[in-house]
Design a protein around this nucleic acid. Sequence first.
DNA 1: TTTAAGTGATACACAGCTGTTGCAGTTAAC
DNA 2: GTTAACTGCAACAGCTGTGTATCACTTAAA
Lengths: 196, 196
Amino acid sequence: MAETGTRRLRADAEQNTARILTAAAEVLAADPLASLERIGEAAGLTRATVHRRFASRQALLEALTEQLDQRYLSALEQSRMDTAPPRPVFLRLTEILFELKVSHRFAMELMSAKSDCRSGLSPRVEEGLEQVFARLRSAGDITATGADWCRGVYLAVVHEVTQLPPDAPDLVAAGGSRAELVVRTVVGALGGTSQP
Amino acid sequence: MAETGTRRLRADAEQNTARILTAAAEVLAADPLASLERIGEAAGLTRATVHRRFASRQALLEALTEQLDQRYLSALEQSRMDTAPPRPVFLRLTEILFELKVSHRFAMELMSAKSDCRSGLSPRVEEGLEQVFARLRSAGDITATGADWCRGVYLAVVHEVTQLPPDAPDLVAAGGSRAELVVRTVVGALGGTSQP
DNA sequence: TTTAAGTGATACACAGCTGTTGCAGTTAAC
DNA sequence: GTTAACTGCAACAGCTGTGTATCACTTAAA
């Protein structure tokens, strides 16, 4: 949403918008209230440049959530929900999320006020997640029925697992795989058995 | 921590500090960045008065967390961990938390930066929680071993359940008891069975 | 190589929150 | 009933972050 009406951006400018988005994701994940100054610094640019690429802080946040949304969607597509059995799909989806190093929490915290849907995710992503849980339920992996509830528990567990140090005993017990720990925990939490 | 070195406060002043703390808990739960102006307004007082009772925003937050800590501790004591079997203890503890209408999340978010322990809770409360989970583990209710992991999942689930509307299907399925849903979910998440 | 686009640096206005002070009016405490 | 404490109101200074504008310099693009 940076600039889509006027002319084409110069190559370096476009590269800088990407830099800013990357830096913003990183910095805001650590501190959701970080100033544009710090974000620009992390991107190796000046605050003025940040303002040139994004009209306002608001605009930057929107672009960031849009990018996040795209990644969620791509993860949902890559996990091939329609063909594979649900639990491996769920695991694969979670693995992709961790590979993308997506830190969602800052979005949840800040976007909830102005976003129309309360999760901070786009309706399409919510819908995709809902399908995953619906398939898990059909397969008997979980018993929980509420879409909001399933999604909320899932995101919360992802967040907790992200906080975990690499040598945490429960993480080691899951073979060192954060995604595996997430799946076990969420499936258990939502009324299934933690054994596959 | 309001004023403990000088003289005794006048009755109305002391009452106002309590009002401020109550209002702060309520307002900050909804918006962790709310200004002292709004907090004072919610307490029916002026911002100046807020500053008279608490030297700084920092001091107010500290007093608030201390109060929160006291309530956690009292809940831990009331749940009689030593005598009763662990799962009812866990349920009772959670019930007390909900009765107290404690909204912990804002503390987690804001205190983590300056607090020495990463959970934002005092060491004594952390220790008490750890004991609860240790007893649950001994009784075979859960299999998870990490104290941080158990506590993190517990607080996250409590937060999620708090967000749930009263008519959420999964809440109804738990008999309408938020505490019951928390216990089922946490026990399941941490490697136990959701059936008592 | 020429040109237009982009950046860095700097300065400025503006808004919101914090913390402090002074004063007049009210209220608890003795 | 008197006194000391407390509050409301208002004003002030200070800080931080945002958003805008200008100018000289650098760089991609034709």
